[in-house]
Design a protein around this nucleic acid. Structure first.
Lengths: 342, 342
DNA sequence: CTGAAAGCGCTTACAG
DNA sequence: CTGAAAGCGCTTACAG
């Protein structure tokens, strides 16, 4: 902080009666310093309450020990929890993070890549939302970047993602195992073959196929917002369509929470009339009533992997190895919304 | 970023055929530069894709344009939403923020104040949880700091806080206006006369008094965690106590969501048997079923005020004026948990 | 084992 | 209106 005139390496050196480089060496952990000298310097440091000026060190070293986390919106529990995991993982790795919210706005998502903060940072952990791989590729990014999250398209970048297909399939298989045969799907996206929505839809279809249940378009609801309010409307639309269904898989918990609210508002019983499952295992899934069955994608593991990969890329400097793709494990948290209260 | 050799002000100067200071001046927005020179420099900047090195600028200027936000835990919606508001407000103010999560852990809360990142930052927005004013005062903090949030104790620091008493009173008055006479209170804290819990409890008592209802200890549940899981247990405890009640005010929405779940699990009707209100107006309050009546404390206003105050302190440099206290406005969002479905 | 020198990229008085 | 100089606080070869 600039408020009070902080003491420098020179002040310490003067007090200790050594040159400033000796102080620097001690700070950097060099072995070869005479015990008696070391003690004098440490004394001076304590006496002056000296703290190294990180900015100066950064300027010299060309690195800052900081990474940026570009994330759409902390108001959404999934992102908030993911951010928390990233921040913890980064701290454990000796990095500090710098949260940039983009609102999933394409311009802001792009701005992060060129913004003034990208100067300050050794690398970027990037959770894209509305931007796609082509645009990203066209950016010709010249610093370490790792893509993170569920919306990762097939891309030439390092990325860490979820078992989208497998998780969705497991959830839908669970619904089917309960004897449900008319399973709706909320959260499909038009016009994409990649990305979380497409993969989860494929998982859904896989599960139906293995059970010998025909896929039906009228049970698939498009919703690319994946938020609580849109989940509520999507469920409203499904109910209004008059198509009968006895279960629903939602692409994330936010959708499921919204859909659940609409179902209960409409006087339906969950899971009696309709069983419902989500994806993400956010904390609100555990405290809704009924509590929500959800695919738990191992958020901490994901965050740690992403931070670790980014750190590796930073250390490698310019020399990029082959791009890497990491997929986390998952489990299915089975709760009241599919199996009822205990 | 350090990955590729970035061009400097000198490179630009050489290409443009001027001295590097001229480039610097143009960058800093000085008026006195000949039109023709300016064009040449801008050309060179574009041609070289020059971006100023923020670290160097910071070293020179002694400030970084960054602030730290020390916050307990993004997994809790209240904090996540507050963080989002702070980040937005900071961006509007030209500052970037740096999120430090403390887990409400006293050591980590203290560490933020001395940590290496406090070097990097022009000031700190501090959301304390377990730390109290005495400890903070003892720290002899020598940089701009603004306390933010609901747990602010009476202190010698600048702080921005919520209308704790008034908000709680309004919520309880609302419950009473519905004809409820046995209003429970969840979230009291033992041994404090200050802080959000004490103030909200006072608001509760005020509302009872104005209505001529006697205050009863057996309707007040202690809970200093203020999380969903603790709200669930607290409500469990209240039910088990056998004390009859027809309404409950919870100190925050997390408690209320947990309590609501317990009520519904127990087969009680909300608001038929028990009306329930919370505080914070987090987004999950709007999507529970029934949706939750809650005190809305004007989060954006709060965040903007806090960022503004901090920025002012930073600009004032060392010269601290009188400490300032800002209290946000509030409104009461009335929803199904007190008045039933529409 | 420790000192003298140069430089990271920028900005700010000082001249002209 | 634009250039030469010094310095922000640190680290890294280079000598000795």
């Amino acid at each position: 902080m600039a408020s009070t005139k902080a003491s420098t390496i020179y002040d310490v050196a003067k007090v200790a009666g050594v040159s400033h480089q000796t102080v620097s060496r001690l700070l950097r952990g060099y072995a070869g310093i005479r015990e008696e000298t070391r003690a004098r310097v440490l004394d001076a440091i304590k006496q002056l309450d000296y703290h190294p000026n990180i900015t100066a060190r950064n300027l010299r070293n060309g690195s800052t020990g900081m990474i940026a986390l570009a994330i759409p919106d902390l108001r959404q529990p999934y992102f908030a929890e993911l951010a928390q995991s990233v921040i913890s993982a980064a701290r454990d790795a000796g990095l500090t993070v710098f949260v940039e919210t983009t609102d999933g706005n394409p311009e802001r998502e792009l701005a992060v890549l060129g913004g003034t903060q990208s100067q300050l940072v050794d690398g970027v952990l990037y959770i894209p939302k509305s931007i796609d791989a082509d645009i990203l590729t066209a950016q010709n990014i010249e610093f370490p970047i790792v893509l993170l999250g569920d919306r990762i398209l097939d891309s030439q970048f390092d990325h860490v993602t979820l078992p989208n297909l497998e998780g969705a399939r497991a959830a839908v298989q669970h619904l089917i195992s309960l004897g449900r045969t008319q399973v709706a799907f909320i959260g499909a996206e038009p016009d994409t073959d990649f990305g979380a929505a497409a993969l989860r839809l494929r998982g859904y279809r896989n599960a139906l196929e293995s059970a010998g249940i025909a896929y039906r378009h009228d049970l698939v609801i498009f919703d690319s917002e994946w938020e609580r309010h849109s989940g509520a409307s999507s469920m409203r639309a499904l109910l209004d369509s008059g198509v009968p269904f006895d279960a629903v898989f939602c692409c994330n918990d936010a959708l499921a929470i919204g859909a659940l609210r609409t179902l209960l508002s409409a006087g339906l019983k969950v899971p009696g009339d309709v069983a419902i499952a989500g994806f993400d295992d956010t904390e609100d899934a555990r405290f809704s009533f009924p509590s929500l069955t959800s695919v738990a994608p191992g958020r901490d593991e994901l965050a740690r992997a992403a931070v670790g990969l980014l750190q590796r890329r930073i250390e490698e400097g310019g020399a990029r190895g082959a791009r890497e793709e990491i997929v986390s494990g998952y489990s299915l948290a089975i709760r009241e919304s599919t199996v009822g209260a205990a």
